[in-house]
């Protein structure tokens, strides 16, 4: 509006006044140059190099890497692990967000802090704690091995470690979002006679669906890409307990660079798709996502 009211002459002076609150053209260009150079060297280059190294010996060699049985087994295991751990944390995230956002009770902020806890634990330590619980000398390890169930150095251990490191993703996206939305719409639905479940499906879910998708997206990316925690509990049995990141490590240490980077291309592509969808959601549905959780 103010643009219309200000005469051209006045606008010129106000522009000059703006100049006092802006950096000089030189400083501006220098800062942009420094920032972009830093991003290109430190972020962009490592990404590009993955694709270049993978195709260094041509496309056939790159494609051949995916015909190895170990590679296929690693891909299958990664998909299985994500297919278990993401829904597990999704259900937990919904339950936790419902309890925390729709009700008031003492100790709530402590509970939120505890849910965030896995993010501040080193991945290697996350793997180690499961080793201490379920390992041969562990608390529950003896009981499980007596039942003939192997957890450590087997798929269940990998799933558990993945669930641990991806634990907070969905919950920490949903809790602030549902807190912002309050309980008014649910109360309206309930007073109009809807059942609790129907209220959840027809009122709550549509309100949180984009936030939910956002959380699931980040959770899935981490679940498929986790290395440290999974590395400790996996035992590195080829074709059995190797996920894609572990397969990358093995191939790289065997100096099979093309195959290692070919596996890495899968994960880098997953990262790019995740970033793309995430940016799209943030741009298109900014209002439907909570403002708090832009960092992880």
């Amino acid at each position: 509006m103010s643009d219309i009211l200000i005469s051209p002459a006045l606008k010129k002076t106000s522009l000059r006044l703006c100049g006092a609150t802006e950096d000089s053209a030189f400083a501006r260009k220098l800062l942009i140059f420094v920032a972009l150079l830093f991003l290109l060297l430190f972020l962009f280059a490592p990404l590009v190099v993955v694709f270049i190294e993978a195709t260094r010996k041509g496309l056939p060699a790159f494609l051949a890497s995916f015909h190895e049985t170990d590679a296929l087994a690693a891909i299958r295991l990664t998909l299985i692990v994500a297919a278990i751990s993401v829904p597990a944390n999704l259900i937990f995230g919904l339950a936790a967000a419902w309890a925390i956002a729709k009700f008031s009770f003492p100790g709530k902020s402590l509970l939120i802090t505890l849910i965030d806890l896995p993010f501040s634990v080193s991945p290697v330590v996350s793997g180690l704690v499961y080793l201490l619980v379920f390992g041969a000398q562990g608390l529950c390890g003896k009981w499980f091995s007596a039942q003939g169930i192997q957890i450590i150095f087997a798929v269940p251990g990998i799933v558990l470690a993945t669930i641990f490191v991806t634990f907070p993703f969905v919950a920490r996206e949903l809790i602030p979002l549902m807190q912002e939305q309050g309980t008014v719409e649910e109360e309206a639905a309930l007073t109009l006679g809807a059942s609790g479940l129907r209220t959840f499906w027809t009122v709550t879910i549509p309100n949180i669906k984009w936030g939910l998708l956002y959380g699931v997206l980040l959770c899935n990316a981490r679940a498929m890409g986790e290395f440290g925690a999974v590395s400790v509990v996996s035992g590195h049995v080829r074709g059995l307990t190797n996920t894609i990141p572990l397969q990358v490590e093995i191939l790289y240490n065997e100096y099979n660079s093309v195959a290692a980077f070919a596996m890495a291309v899968l994960l880098a592509s997953l990262a790019l798709v995740t970033l793309g969808l995430k940016t799209f959601l943030e741009w298109k549905y900014a209002d439907a996502l909570s403002g708090r959780s832009r960092r992880h």
Binding site: L43, P46, L47, V49, V50, E53, P123, L218, A221, M224, G225, E226, F227, G228, P245, L246, V248, E249, Y252, A260, F261, A264, L267, A268, L270, A271, L272, T274, L275, K278, H296
Partner: peptide, 12 residues
């Protein structure tokens, strides 16, 4: 760096 798995970042 949030999205790229650490092992991939490491080898690249």
């Amino acid at each position: 760096p949030f999205a790229l798995p650490t092992a991939v970042a490491g080898i690249s």
